[in-house]
Design a protein around this nucleic acid. Structure first.
Lengths: 177, 177
DNA sequence: CCGAGCATGTAACACGTTACATGATTGC
DNA sequence: GCAATCATGTAACGTGTTACATGCTCGG
């Protein structure tokens, strides 16, 4: 699977929840998937157009005076499941913070501590957001068992953020020893 | 800072440790920085050429019959510190595993459990590698305090891998409830 | 002498972001 | 009527990977 079809996957997924405009797809992705996925307009519209050409997506102009609504066709839903089942090929990691810290001796301990503090602050902020979302989603799960899957992605973010914070603590100790 | 200068940063960093060929830069990056950074030949050679044009890197053909050695100039070392000091602008995250699990209800619990097991296996394998490296680097730190910075990046990987494993455990429980 | 690995590069393609252009709708 | 937001798209640019082409050198 090319990387492009990762974008297709995200778009098809968004439209599988409900039909909506391209603009709304973007909003749905940055809002709901925002903690682990991102797409820009420049990707979304061409992708929708390609999916429409391939018969996976249908445009419903209907009586609307402006804008259109896009929805999955049957083939589109099948294609979505197909893409979901493919193994995830992850891109090589690129962590700018670690790259900087690796050469930290050229920067000095003070600057490195600042970089670490920044990382901790970002992680703490993200953790707070995720805690709030987790609370909501846990409530949803009681009503709809399928909401578990959404909860999984929130849990992943929480674990990751907490690990980041613990790492910063340990690292600061190591630097000030 | 453009994203390109992230590649410049990695290349300058590699050459700051010692002068070497472009081929060796690639080996150094995939080897030593491999757990949090990746570069391909197609990026490295043009980047070295650009750095050479800008006067940050010097080519030393010397008496060698083939190949050349690249080393940092004074301006190059200054440039490296400059880039290191710039704030890290991280790319929007793209986690294919989470994207799939988010739409897990379309795949069913069994497939999702398999995805989680895969993730755990990869994390465990990475953790084992990192544990070994950490052992080595801790020994180096006793001789050279500057090796701490290398240790930081290894610690980050360990925390991240352990978090991943803990997340899988919790998620599997949630799915089999 | 021949294959494996060292070494340098380029070209084609894929991917992605940003900025721009354009217009409709809606609430004040 | 005017501003904010919804909505659709394109063009330019930067970035990055892959595959290819080429030649050296060194050990067996």
């Amino acid at each position: 699977m090319s990387k492009m079809s990762q974008t297709e996957l995200a778009v098809l997924g968004a439209l599988s929840v409900q039909s909506m405009s391209g603009y709304a797809v973007r909003a749905a992705i940055t809002g709901t998937l925002g903690h682990f996925w991102g797409e820009s307009f420049g990707q979304i519209y061409p992708t929708i157009a390609r999916l429409e050409g391939a018969g996976f997506v249908e445009r419903d102009v209907a009586g609307k005076t402006s804008g259109s609504t896009f929805g999955l066709t049957l083939a589109g839903r099948k294609r979505l499941v197909e893409l979901l089942a493919e193994p995830n090929q992850s891109a090589p990691p690129r962590n700018g913070t670690l790259l900087r810290l690796f050469f930290g001796s050229l920067l000095g301990p003070e600057v490195c501590q600042q970089i670490l503090d920044d990382a901790r602050m970002r992680a703490e902020q993200q953790l707070a957001e995720l805690d709030a979302i987790a609370h909501e989603v846990r409530a949803e799960v009681r009503a709809d068992p399928d909401a578990r899957y959404r909860l999984l992605t929130v849990l992943a973010g929480q674990h990751s953020a907490r690990a980041q914070i613990a790492w910063v603590e340990e690292s600061l100790e190591l630097l000030t020893m």
